[in-house]
């Protein structure tokens, strides 16, 4: 182990936290890129190829002309939109409390947010089945409160699916909202009330517009994730209210119509990519706004 004087200058880029020469970067990245090319990109491309046998778009034609498929795609959009709206509406006050409620509140609410985040989707859907079944806790409580006389049907309904989905999406929706809200200066709202504005007016005219980038980011994220849900609708819903992911699985498991299943998968992939592109755009707008504000 000699003093490195003969080795020449320190051979690293200025930011490197390790001591190797620059070409090392290639060898460090190559395994990951190759691995994903082989086991991630290739399967997706394969799906595209299977969906276009001999360059024919027959499967896509079938999807966009058959009422069953159109209904499932429509249902997927409908459920995803409703779930997104409910999720953001529930997430908004929660994120507000996290952002402006002080340290203790922030800690408690963060713990409540992260505990379910760490329990698998499958287990949470299982738990909702137990809670929502006819002899479940929700029905028991409603009966005890005298709101209903006999158990109402909650699982195997779109309502059950939506409860389960909102529960899973909530953490994803709260975090972007919180990030934006904690940067909002509450003195602006105070100033408006000193100037005579009511609480409501201050909120609508000052606070809400400032929080809009967070609303957009969390809505688009929730919507993107909602489109591809499989486990929750399969466990909590009825086959009649099928979403697109279940239909894809069905084509591969039961119908054995791989071409059609692949085409449906490509449709879902494209829809998700579009929704996620919107997410990126919303974030870019948010960041440029932040920058221009810093510049002032």
């Amino acid at each position: 182990m000699n003093v490195s004087a003969q080795d020449g200058a320190v051979p690293v880029s200025a930011r490197a936290p390790w001591p190797f020469r620059v070409p090392t970067a290639f060898w460090l990245i190559a395994p990951a890129v190759l691995f994903l090319a082989l086991f991630f990109v290739f399967p997706l491309l394969r799906l595209v190829a299977i969906s276009l046998p001999g360059g024919s778009v027959e499967y896509y034609e079938q999807i966009f002309t058959t009422p069953v498929f159109l209904r499932v795609i429509g249902e997927t959009f409908r459920v995803s939109l409703i779930v997104t709206a409910v999720t953001v509406a529930v997430a908004y006050p929660y994120a507000y409390a996290m952002a402006h409620g002080g340290r203790t509140v922030l800690l408690l609410l963060t713990v409540a947010l992260l505990i379910p985040f760490w329990v698998s989707l499958l287990l949470r859907s299982f738990s909702w089945i137990v809670l929502l079944q006819n002899s479940g806790l929700i029905n028991d409580v409603l009966i005890a409160m005298g709101l209903i006389e006999k158990p109402i049907r909650l699982i195997r309904t779109p309502f059950g699916v939506m409860i389960g989905m909102v529960h899973i999406l909530l953490p994803y929706a709260v975090l972007p909202l919180y990030t934006v809200m904690k940067k909002i200066d509450l003195r602006l709202v105070e100033a408006s009330s000193i100037c005579g504005a009511s609480w409501l007016k201050g909120f609508i005219r000052i606070y809400f517009p400032l929080s809009l980038p967070g609303v957009a980011a969390s809505a688009i994220l929730a919507f993107t994730l909602a489109l591809g849900f499989y486990i929750t609708p399969a466990l909590l819903g009825s086959p009649r209210d099928m979403m697109i992911a279940q239909m894809i699985a069905g084509q591969f498991n039961e119908q054995l119509n791989f071409g059609l299943g692949a085409a449906l998968a490509v449709v879902l992939m494209v829809l998700t990519a579009i929704a996620f592109g919107l997410f990126g755009a919303a974030r870019a707008v948010l960041q440029s706004r932040g920058r221009s504000k810093d510049g002032v």
Binding site: A32, V33, V41, P43, L44, R46, A249, F252, M269
Partner: peptide, 25 residues
Amino acid sequence: VVMGLLLSPMVTPVIVLAVGMYMVF
């Protein structure tokens, strides 16, 4: 692009991955 590739499995619907891998594997 590399960064996008490395992170994209996180946002791809799992069902799409599942059927794609099933066909290839």
